[in-house]
Design a protein around this nucleic acid. Sequence first.
DNA 1: CATGAATGAGAATTCATTCAT
DNA 2: TATGAATGAATTCTCATTCAT
Lengths: 214, 214, 214, 214
Amino acid sequence: MDKIATQSPRQKRDPEETRKRILKAAKKEFAQLGLAGARVDTIADRAKANKRMIYHYFGNKEDLFQAVIEEAYLDIRAAERKLKLELLEPVEAIKALVRFSWDYYLKNPEFLALVNSENLHRARHLKKAQTIIEVHGRFIGMVEEILQRGVGQGVFRPDVDPVQLVITIAGISYYYQTNRYTGSIIFQRDLMSDEAREERLNFNIDTILRLLRP
Amino acid sequence: MDKIATQSPRQKRDPEETRKRILKAAKKEFAQLGLAGARVDTIADRAKANKRMIYHYFGNKEDLFQAVIEEAYLDIRAAERKLKLELLEPVEAIKALVRFSWDYYLKNPEFLALVNSENLHRARHLKKAQTIIEVHGRFIGMVEEILQRGVGQGVFRPDVDPVQLVITIAGISYYYQTNRYTGSIIFQRDLMSDEAREERLNFNIDTILRLLRP
Amino acid sequence: MDKIATQSPRQKRDPEETRKRILKAAKKEFAQLGLAGARVDTIADRAKANKRMIYHYFGNKEDLFQAVIEEAYLDIRAAERKLKLELLEPVEAIKALVRFSWDYYLKNPEFLALVNSENLHRARHLKKAQTIIEVHGRFIGMVEEILQRGVGQGVFRPDVDPVQLVITIAGISYYYQTNRYTGSIIFQRDLMSDEAREERLNFNIDTILRLLRP
Amino acid sequence: MDKIATQSPRQKRDPEETRKRILKAAKKEFAQLGLAGARVDTIADRAKANKRMIYHYFGNKEDLFQAVIEEAYLDIRAAERKLKLELLEPVEAIKALVRFSWDYYLKNPEFLALVNSENLHRARHLKKAQTIIEVHGRFIGMVEEILQRGVGQGVFRPDVDPVQLVITIAGISYYYQTNRYTGSIIFQRDLMSDEAREERLNFNIDTILRLLRP
DNA sequence: CATGAATGAGAATTCATTCAT
DNA sequence: TATGAATGAATTCTCATTCAT
């Protein structure tokens, strides 16, 4: 739909703010419609920015998508770091991590959609983002350290690959949530009701603890 | 640039064949690029069919997508029924099911992409497919029956929700494979090498058995 | 200016015709405004064709320009070949050639503009046109043959480089005509009046004959 | 993509200098790409000036083009006046003029491109430049005077129109050089090598002297 | 049934110009 | 005078869909 003579007042001159507004609007749009389905016009509208500014700050649609992807990956790791898992007892740390995955996806469903989109594009945007690789490496290191502490205390079995664990923790929440629409149809059950969500989270914690149990 | 006057030889007049070729080409294209990214022209080319035929057989692009989605869901359940899980011992049946999920996704990566796409579109195409709901209901029923047998034999703990189980079985394979591109970058590891795949499958079987263990 | 609801009747389905109409319209537009100044929309309008057809037949604006350039160069040589200069006496042949240059530019002012445009673009389109190089080589060969006959008959001096001659013949007409607008101002004289044109043509013939005189 | 935040150091406040830098950058850009192809942004960059300054000093893109054209025409005549042809013997004066044309175009190829551009625009910018008309009138007067002296000395034939002569002198150099890209392809010869240039200059001098010979 | 040319409504991108600071 | 962010109007190019043959 065209905006007709809405004559929005000229935007304040705050470059950093403008850039952020665009990025936020783009995240929403890309999450909702994918790279191909997203519309630059809509992003501009949502950002209350001039379309020209998108090209000014980000180059083109694809580069904007890349910026969105990068930010999304940095955000989730930043949020996770705030948990300070390394300060918790092993079992508590793992529980917190499972809960974090579940909650983060729940509060940031765009993240799931963006990751799916990025995989559709064979991760060609993520490939260029060196920082993310580093940040992620540190995350795996931390999980490994938790596992070792748990093994030392006799609460976890040895020889669990931290990468397999992390993938499993993510997978059991991710799949449930990213497929909430098809899942609700196929299983004929509202997967996202309060009870359903609570039940699933507990199921996931149980699954992971059983997996680690000696 | 468009190709001009390739004058491909007029296709044989085999309606059913043409329809199938289009459907197959469409599945590939939609899986590769999503609904918005897919091109009707490309589908026609890939199907070695005339574009007009797509509209003749399927109405429009979106309806074609719907046909692809329906077929994809019917196919996976048909493949699974061939396993005749109900004839196996409970533990063997579950193992076979985990293995099946893993292998099916591996051999049919379009399925993952299509399901992701369909969720991007909030399952609005799947909603219209009554058959799939029924087929799926029977599948859940069968898993439930396996669980009960296992509980009766004392090899499974009681009170495991078959839906949660099925979602978990799917999720731990699905996530790994659908995110193979971003995953390989983030974890700095080739997730799809022969060894990696073998290792993951075993990990998954183990995860599910631990989850069911009394 | 937009055309408003002119609702032109759907064009007849004559691909070759459509292609020609586009090419002709493009030649006019590019000659008038250059590659950068030309508008694809205007070309479509002028060709009474759908804009989409331009991309269908020619790929993009630049490729269309290239097609125009190629055709322009082929046309002038084709017109010149019709003169059958090789059948004339040397002096008459040269006179005919000088006259031809003058007249061709006069009747085809787009040619001058297109060549100027192509030089602005450092001949990057012409570079790809092998045919033109060959056609032109034959043209130079024919002029050389005329020169030799003239030398043999004692009417031309020896050792005149046919390329220099051809460039000179072209240059004295080309410059006059391509600069007719700035020239008319600078020299405060209507360079394109009937008398002015007649006078210049005679001057040019004289110049070339003096140049060849033994 | 736009460059962002290059934060070039604020330019010194030297109005006249800024104006000159813009004019010089504009000449280059217009010569390279024509009026339509030139970019105001690029001109600003090349001039290391703020885009706003272009509008401040020149009004708009088209007026800037006009300023460039005017300057170009004034420059060539100024350079030519320095030759003091009126002090040379007629034959030497003409030789010097032919050589000047050749050399000036060689050292100022933008001049050729600008003149071509201006003719594409039907000289609408030059029309407004009264000074140029006057300067040029004086130039023709001087050539006429040289011709008369030559006729008086019996070294030139009478009745040669100075305007035709001037156009011819310009044309044989101009055409060669302005078409150096297409020419080099069509004639399959590097028209701009040292030898080729030397040969052409001599050819041109010879052509003009033969044209004037009694 | 089959073909592929033609269409119109977008969609991405570009650009000269203006305006707040 | 100088800066560069912001704007809106084009402009090139794309795409699903229709229609004559």
